[in-house]
């Protein structure tokens, strides 16, 4: 049980940390100052939530691993984020579409997790709901602006969705860890989360005059630590200072 809870908490944290990394790459390079600020806010919110989850995962594991140990001292095969999070930023439509597909999942997940039988996860989720609501509103608005903006922005948004769609299946994948967590009432019913996600996606894309891509082949592997080639570079960049000075305090 505690191992499954550790694994489950860690995946929630890994998703947020890796998305935070990608969003952090935008800082100082946004399309307009207001968006630079908004994206950084988003990155900060994800990081804050990830930190709470890592700290809790460390406690559950009981091996004295800190948030930094978990973020900086694991290798690619030990990270269990979905591949959607590690996808490169691409253009702004690609970045926003990636966040939109995540936000539409993250909000109902956090809402449901507030009722988790695990008090700590429920508390972390309670804190996240407000932020996640704002994230989804902001990314939905951009999808609509892009889809119903100019021809160029419409094309870019559609291309981003088409490219990223294959990574959405993983968000709802079932496996023994999730099964055990669901049975214990710690993780919510993912079918309900998926239904909420699907409804949001349909509504927003309809208003954006964008086409929902067909469910074709769905990428998999992230939850087992089987990532894309991008992952090694993300970790190399993120971890190199920390690893170069073992045991140092910062």
């Amino acid at each position: 049980m505690s191992n499954a809870l550790f694994q489950y908490t860690l995946r929630l944290a890994d998703d947020l940390l890796i998305l935070n990394h990608r969003l952090s790459e935008w800082c100082g390079h946004g399309p307009i100052l207001e968006e630079d600020i908004a994206l950084t806010n988003r990155a900060l919110d994800h990081l804050g939530e990830a930190r709470n989850l890592f700290t809790y995962a460390g406690q559950v594991e009981g091996k004295n691993r800190s948030e930094d140990d978990l973020a900086y001292l694991r290798m690619e095969r030990q990270f269990t984020n979905v591949k959607l999070m590690e996808q490169p930023n691409g253009d702004y439509a690609h970045t926003m579409a990636r966040s939109f597909l995540f936000d539409a999942y993250h909000l109902p997940l956090m809402q449901a997790l507030t009722k988790s039988t695990d008090a700590q996860l429920a508390a972390i989720a309670g804190k996240s709901v407000k932020e996640a609501t704002y994230h989804l509103r902001a990314s939905s608005e951009w999808m609509i602006r892009f889809g119903d903006g100019t021809e160029k922005s419409h094309q870019r948004a559609q291309a981003a969705l088409d490219n990223l769609w294959t990574f959405t299946g993983e968000l709802f994948e079932n496996d023994p860890v999730l099964e055990e967590m669901t049975k214990a009432g710690i993780a919510p019913d993912m079918a309900a989360v998926k239904a909420a996600w699907s409804k949001t996606v349909d509504e927003v894309l309809a208003e954006a005059t964008l086409k929902r891509p067909a469910d074709g082949f769905m990428a998999t592997g992230g939850r087992k630590g089987l990532h894309s080639e991008h992952m090694g570079f993300i970790l190399a960049e993120m971890q190199h200072v920390t690893r170069a000075y073992p045991g140092a305090e910062w």
Binding site: G30, P31, I32, E35, D91, Y92, A93, R145, F146, G149, T150, K152, S153, R156
Partner: peptide
């Protein structure tokens, strides 16, 4: 690179 975003 942000021009098309602002235009949209």
């Amino acid at each position: 690179e942000g021009a098309w975003v602002r235009e949209a």
